[in-house]
């Protein structure tokens, strides 16, 4: 059990410093900018969350397990298409059922090969969120048990929330 946000930020720093290369490494030449300070404590009143963590795509499962061990609950998984930077961002929201902590974990994958491991083994609730993100953005969640469209028709081949999607 953790008692302060700093206690939570520390394991994340350890996680970020491990610097393990992702098993599904992005294609050579793809730009993966490593942020200077991946863990930021932000002002809740201005942002709506307390801790903003940026991790490598391969580390999202570790991050999820870390938060799971600390009693956090699954809030949402979603994507953002940063078409100007040729990247997709996967955003994981977590809340804590016993207090007000809110943690956001982000990982960026290249648009050309949007693939990231699934966290549905840690949080089964992520299953549906990942299916939704997959159908809306075309982001592949490696190891997901059932990556079929959830809200779109089962034969949908398009990804409507991509910025270059034309209806």
């Amino acid at each position: 059990m953790i008692h302060s946000l700093q206690e939570l930020a520390d394991p994340f720093s350890a996680l970020a410093s491990q610097d393990t290369p992702p098993p599904t490494s992005p294609a050579a030449g793809a730009v993966v900018p490593a942020p200077v300070n991946p863990i930021q404590t932000v002002d809740f009143a201005a942002k709506g969350f307390h801790l903003d963590v940026r991790v490598q795509p391969a580390q999202v499962v570790d991050a999820a397990s870390l938060l799971d061990r600390n009693g956090f609950a699954m809030d949402a998984v979603t994507g953002v298409d940063w078409i100007a930077e040729n990247e997709m961002e996967v955003v994981y929201d977590y809340f804590h059922p016993d207090n007000s902590w809110r943690v956001v974990v982000r990982a960026r994958v290249p648009r050309s090969q949007p693939e990231i491991p699934t966290i549905s083994a840690v949080f089964p609730g992520a299953n549906w969120h990942e299916r939704e993100t997959h159908e809306f953005f075309g982001i592949v969640f490696a190891g997901h048990p059932n990556l079929t469209p959830l809200l779109l028709p089962e034969d949908a081949t398009y990804h409507p929330l991509r910025k270059d999607f034309v209806a």
Binding site: G71, F72, A73, M74, D75, A76, F95, P97, F123, P124, G125
Partner: peptide, 10 residues
């Protein structure tokens, strides 16, 4: 239960 709610974000 509590755990199921936490895991699913209910």
């Amino acid at each position: 239960g509590r755990e199921m709610c936490r895991k699913y974000g209910a």
